[in-house]
Design a protein around this nucleic acid. Structure first.
Lengths: 349, 349
DNA sequence: GTGAAAGCGCTAACAA
DNA sequence: TTGTTAGCGCTTTCAC
């Protein structure tokens, strides 16, 4: 079919910027299309002289291979997706960075997005990434039903969950020992003489929140301490909500003498509330955070290793892509109690 | 062995992602290819009955549109790239998140990567994103020569720089008033009686570091204070280097009585050093950080607004893509001094 | 060593 | 309302 001015003008690339293609390079270098492809991809079977001519044409035209087209042909996109809760949360910075480093080491790009703790948005994002044909997906789940991913996994999308397990499907998951960590933290408070201990955590539908609450209950039960309903508060980690929860526990007829904070967002807000408070209240927080050691007192935490979680998950993902993995596995990373002062304060009534 | 989505994916015929296409859906539904396309894209001109049949075939086959192919045809990828220094740095969390939100509002996905402050890696990453045909690029530059982007920009890739200007090309840039902020911060220390003031900053080739140093010098000059060479230390923000720099300034025959820290990485390390130090030393840091108000004393900072920077840059990017922008512009956002105690300490010899 | 032709999965243009 | 055809820019195959 003859090229008309109209057909040329209608071409999409002429609306958004006209880039040279291999065909253009080939025409300019006076060689065939495939020869250009060989040069661009460093394939053998091109004489140095031809190669030089092609390279000159590439430079002159400012050609850059269109990886979208390449992907379409090759099947693999050399990119993976990361769905997390909030890029701005300091917990996810090191985690993303670790995923990125592993991805880079495998020649992949990382596409990522935040679910904002909204299950619908998580699904929308994950499926958009699948439509882009990412090779794999690392997901920090917001929702608890991931059956929507079943066709994708069946179609070959490698998938690893981090921090919280998948719901409704059998998939790899890398998580911290939330139950054990919380139990240890609360036991630590009990060992320092506390009996009236509060727990402030994230929404109960979030796995880590539920597990940490379970750890709290277990520690209390182990010590034979009956738990009052008013000592537990689960909900969004929004400062306003957490502040109110903390203030309620600290006031009233039978106030708590210690608080266990379910994650770093909660801890930070509780630290603020306690700073305004006359009575000294002990505090242990799940997850470490910068400067925790420099506060007065230093904040005792159950530390987890987000970078290691990210690295482990990403490595597992690429193992899946290598085809070297069989059954989905649950990998639980240990936590560590770091005593800094706030968790060792005695009860004060 | 039970059949799981994973085991199905591992079957030879599925190894390379054997996914159903529109053609498969069309065959199953007994309609033409274009009709499937219409249904998938919600285009009009399909009877409810046909639509239902197509939808059934889609669900039965687990079809998901291949956006790579779509992109190839349409020209726009509906994705933008973000090249930053380190995803794990708390300064970039809110910035990335803001870029992501704007991107999402425009129906785009965000692909991002860290340059690790390495100019070669920045270039490699930016060009890889161009090869993926991202529609636009938000770059926090590590290098100071961006002429490598010239062919890309000419080819229509929208580009906005953040935090530091581009080198060698004329491009939009969104930055904080580093010079003015640093000058204000140092003037604040001078106003509180300090004369021997140290400056610890990032590598001098980084624009913000150079500007902040310039602000420091300007404030000192305005006050008629000659600056000693030993009061200034520029280099990597690695804690070891910063710690040594701080310790040197604080010891010696003529130690500084105040320190201006060039960014949040530096500030945090200086806070640690000062905490171990007997003598009270005043401190002002560029860039705010979480819990700065809860330290003893609270840390006085020059605060900038990373989320606003990200938002501004991303909005500008999409304006470029709308074709509604003319000349590249330099947008400088104001900084704000937040006094919290550390910057108001009097000199102590 | 080199290149022509087919086709990856989709959308645009046009025909029926 | 629906279907057919021709590409998007690249890689694969196979012939020269």
């Amino acid at each position: 079919m003859p090229e008309t001015a109209r057909s040329i003008a209608r071409r999409p690339e002429n609306r958004y910027g006209n880039r040279p293609t291999m065909k253009d390079v080939a025409a300019r270098a006076g060689v065939g299309l495939k020869t250009v492809s060989r040069v661009v991809n460093g394939e053998p079977g091109v004489t140095p002289d031809t190669e030089r001519r092609v390279q000159e044409a590439i430079d002159a035209l400012g050609f850059r291979r269109n990886d979208s087209a390449r992907v379409l042909r090759k099947g693999r996109t050399a990119s993976i997706g990361l769905v997390l809760e909030d890029l701005a949360d300091p917990f996810y910075g090191p985690l993303s960075r670790a995923v990125e480093e592993v991805s880079r080491a495998h020649g992949s790009l990382l596409i990522n997005g935040s679910s904002a703790e909204d299950p619908d948005r998580e699904q929308e994002l994950a499926l958009a990434l699948c439509a882009r044909r990412v090779d794999g997906l690392v997901i920090i789940p917001a929702g608890d039903d991931h059956r929507y991913l079943e066709p994708e996994i069946r179609a070959g999308v490698a998938t690893v969950f981090v921090d919280r397990p998948a719901g409704g499907i059998d998939a790899d998951v890398v998580l911290s020992d939330s139950f054990g960590g919380a139990r240890d933290g609360v036991a630590h408070l009990i060992a320092h003489g506390h009996r009236r201990i509060g727990f402030i955590g994230d929404m109960p539908r979030i796995h880590t929140a539920a597990e940490r609450l379970r750890g709290y209950r277990a520690a209390m039960e182990d010590a034979g301490i009956p738990v009052e309903a008013t000592w537990m508060s689960l909900g969004v980690t929004d400062p306003v909500r957490v502040r109110r929860a903390a203030e309620e526990m600290l006031s009233g007829p039978d106030p708590v003498t210690a608080v266990f904070a379910g994650n770093n967002r909660v801890t930070v807000t509780v630290v603020r509330v306690l700073a305004e408070h006359a009575r000294r209240v002990a505090l242990v927080g799940f997850d470490d955070f910068e400067l925790a050691d420099l506060l007065q007192p230093g904040i005792t935490v159950i530390s987890q290793d987000p970078a290691r979680m990210g690295r482990t998950a990403a490595e597992r993902l690429f193992q899946q892509l290598d085809g070297s993995l069989l059954a989905p596995e649950r990998i639980e990373l240990p936590t560590r109690l770091i005593a800094r002062g706030s968790g060792e304060l005695p009860p004060e009534d």
